[in-house]
Design a protein around this nucleic acid. Structure first.
Lengths: 343, 343
DNA sequence: CTGAAAGCGCTAACAA
DNA sequence: TTGTTAGCGCTTTCAG
């Protein structure tokens, strides 16, 4: 008969409570609840019944401290508002599925100091691995990650040196390839429109790629338009109006993402411009969300979901190539011509 | 005498290491690192220098176990892909800002059993509070939350009984009010288009509100169109084509969200339909992302960011009304006529 | 198959 | 202002 317990409104239950209720030692209760095989069916039944009846929820904090194992993977991304990252996250969830690891997300708002802080906070929970967007971090952030002794995967971008592993695409190459596609289609007066430049390193690298490819072809961007703040179709409209006002003879607009590109496309169509004859357009990301537009915007697919999956697999120690250790995986984005570049 | 420890490449550092390196007791090191006031400046300096030099990252697992306090708030939402939730999350981050609490997110994919599991996992980390989307949960999930002894805030919806607190809008009322607006504008043959019905309780309640309001006016929906899967403009196009094919004389289309509504709007415009004369359109959510469309889609603003902020404040124990304890906060969504309902 | 003892790394409470 | 002691709730290890 269990000892009398004062009705304590909200003390969380412990293994001890389940032990008392089932008449089995704490240790054996622990074994049952961790699904270990070396427990007799009868005992198992008794324990599970007691645990369920009490509504016991294990304390993972204590478990983690005792076992020195934490089934969490920290995931650090710039922003959830960006449309791009939710898909990466869902790829990560997928890739982690079978591993028993749980992702924990943190956002940095594209601010290096915030990133440093988020990384610090996450590492202090001793996760089993970390997935971090981008290759650019503060020195302390790099040091913390590097010293943590856990798998670190930097994602999205591969133009740089990783701390440990990296999975992503070359944004420079994406920029180059789009520029080459644009030139091959015969466009000559090219404008670039982007948001949040200073700390959006990937957009910066795409711009760099474009610039290089144009230089190699003996030309250069005819105009650029930058804007701070989030991306929306409305923003794309405004920027497009502004750049065409400043430089009316542009025949191509390359946007740093599909959302503002879609706004630009709608603007051009509303203005009665001939797309893609008179003016061509391209974005970046391959957002499916937008395929209801009258024309399919040319874009580069950023392989977001696959990046998440592969990164998760690395953290989980699942390698499809059989190689263990730091990995560098470059995915190859496809340029999609859509309907806004003339064939 | 401590046992011999081989130079272990990646043993995480402990307070003990900082204590040794600085010649100060573990306890005092702990005080310094927690920014407690009762430490002499000289000691503080020494400790901070040692901690930084070593690259010490505290172990929150041990800290949480010892102090019985965890600065985490669990946030459970259906999906990150839904555009709606990122904004709620950012509201939560805002509202938690000054409290020292950190949000931890989990997604359920609109599946009750997954929700139950996510809640269980989160509670096992003993968070300081939980914010959960919706009022519909499995019985075990309700029981776990209810027994957890921490603040529970259910958000987005207030049509039902909360476990503890709730912050949201009445989706039934939103449906009613939109229906009334539609009728007042003179539309009579109304179609409803929605995705993911069975477990999207909020969309279901809006539909219920519409149905009720129409019944009170002596009429009913002329058609409904349901579709499983994610929302995109392309999906909105397809559904609109389908419903107009089936029931060509509809004069109003009410969509369960702005994304499919935007697709429907583009479809109608492409078809050369007179919007809002011949056919009116409305969505739901108030997505800013979309304001670059040629016409502003009529919608109901769901107060997503404010819901997140208020929920976070409740969990953090910050009440702007001075009342402590379970709260019920109903926000009042505004119907926005836009350009797709005739004035 | 089950139990007892020791301790994970930190902090509350108290003592000096 | 600083140090000492005793756990937090669980799991590891080892003994029965």
């Amino acid at each position: 008969m269990p000892p009398y317990l004062p009705p304590d409104a909200h003390r969380p239950l412990t293994l001890r409570d389940v032990s008392d209720a089932s008449g089995v030692s704490e240790m054996t209760v622990s074994r049952v609840l961790r699904n270990r095989a070396d427990v007799s069916p009868a005992t198992r039944e008794k324990v599970l019944a007691a645990a369920k009846a009490l509504g016991y929820v294990p304390n993972k904090i204590a478990g983690a401290l005792a076992s020195q194992r934490v089934n969490l993977v920290g995931v650090v991304i710039p922003s959830l508002a960006n449309m791009v990252f939710p898909e990466v996250l869902s790829g990560i969830s997928d890739g982690l599925e079978a591993s028993g690891l749980q992702p924990v997300f943190g956002a940095t708002d594209y601010k290096p100091e915030r990133e440093e802080n988020v990384i610090y906070e996450m590492l202090s929970w001793r996760p089993s691995g970390m997935i971090v967007a981008g290759l650019e971090h503060t020195d302390p952030a790099r040091a913390m990650l590097s010293n943590s002794g856990i798998p670190i995967v930097e994602i999205m971008d591969i133009d740089g040196e990783p701390i440990d592993s990296m999975v992503g695409i070359s944004h420079r190459r994406a920029g180059r390839e789009m520029a080459q596609t644009i030139l091959a289609a015969g466009y000559r007066r090219i404008g670039f429109l982007g948001t949040k430049m200073p700390d959006d390193h990937r957009a910066r690298k795409r711009l760099q790629g474009v610039t290089e490819a144009l230089a190699e072809a003996g030309t250069a961007l005819a105009a650029t338009e930058h804007y701070a703040g989030g991306s929306s179709m409305g923003k794309g409209r405004e920027m497009t109006a502004a750049i065409l006002e400043r430089v009316p003879d542009l025949d191509f607009l390359y946007y740093s993402n599909d959302m503002i590109g879609a706004g630009g496309l709608l603007f051009c169509l509303d203005q009665g411009l001939d797309v893609p004859g008179q003016i061509g357009l391209a974005g970046f990301n391959g957002l499916e969300l937008l395929d209801g537009l009258r024309m399919r915007l040319a874009t580069t697919d950023a392989c977001r979901r696959e990046i998440g999956q592969r990164a998760a697999q690395i953290v989980a120690g699942i390698s499809d190539d059989g190689v263990i250790g730091a990995k560098r995986i470059e995915l190859s984005p496809r340029v999609e011509i859509g309907d806004t570049i003339r064939g």
